[in-house]
């Protein structure tokens, strides 16, 4: 149950001593080496670091796509590290919105249908889905591109469709792994404007980047090495 006290500066996410260790050919790769991290509601957090520093691994961990080798992960009071696959899928579906570097849209589906997908998995009626998808697309300025397929859209527009898809289920947290990495600087700027607006509206955002000017949009930056 949500209590009224948890409105201001409540921690949404608590990571304690998170390790992710891979074994490649007998060698140990510490992708995450004891990460402690707290993310509050309505925070805009940037994660920086060189390639291979574990940014994506951390994002996947936060996004409940991956489970840590050891450590505790608490998401809105729920113990994620104890969850099974179905519970993780449910958390991803209801509480997390993903934005990928490569957009990851279904090429044969229209923008509207792409945005609808999380709602399908949430078992929401079709009419309601279409309505929510249109609303999400409108909020990223794509109300006139609803029935276009990804190959009929520019890179920036595709990423905005992806953002609409991430937002459509009103997640507690939006995760973006190098969302501007495949875009030119103008489109990148557009995307960052969208994220700024989302932050203004009260969304919690975690963004991975290795560009300082992108990280500058965030109100907190952490660095991985």
């Amino acid at each position: 149950m949500i209590t009224t006290k948890r409105t201001i500066n409540v921690s949404l996410i608590l990571l304690k001593k998170i390790y992710k260790i891979y074994h490649v050919g007998g060698e140990e790769v510490r992708a995450l080496d004891g990460v402690d991290l707290t993310i509050s509601k309505n925070e805009f957090l940037a994660i920086k670091g060189p390639s291979g520093s574990g940014k994506s691994t951390l994002m996947n961990m936060i996004g409940c796509l991956d489970t840590p080798t050891s450590g505790d992960y608490e998401f809105e009071g729920e113990m994620v590290h104890n969850m099974d696959d179905n519970q993780l899928a449910s958390i991803r579906n209801r509480k997390i919105g993903f934005v990928f570097q490569t957009f990851n849209l279904l090429p044969k589906a229209t923008a509207q249908h792409n945005v609808e997908i999380p709602l399908v998995y949430a078992n929401i009626r079709r009419e309601k889905r279409l309505m929510m998808a249109s609303k999400a697309l409108t909020s990223v300025g794509l109300e006139d591109r609803m029935h276009h397929k990804p190959n009929e859209l520019s890179g920036g527009q595709r990423q905005r469709v992806a953002i609409a898809r991430a937002l459509v289920n009103n997640p507690s947290l939006v995760l973006a792994d190098e969302p501007t990495g495949n875009l030119d600087s103008k489109s990148g700027q557009e995307i960052m404007d969208v994220f700024d607006a989302l932050h203004q509206e009260g969304n919690t955002i975690v963004l991975v980047t290795h560009e300082d000017y992108i990280a500058a949009h965030a109100n907190r930056t952490i660095q991985l090495f």
Binding site: L65, A89, N93, F98, P118, N169
Partner: peptide, 16 residues
Amino acid sequence: TKEIGTRKALGATSRM
């Protein structure tokens, strides 16, 4: 494969 990964990220369970 990538579509499957994306669908799972968006909340599809293995069964789905």
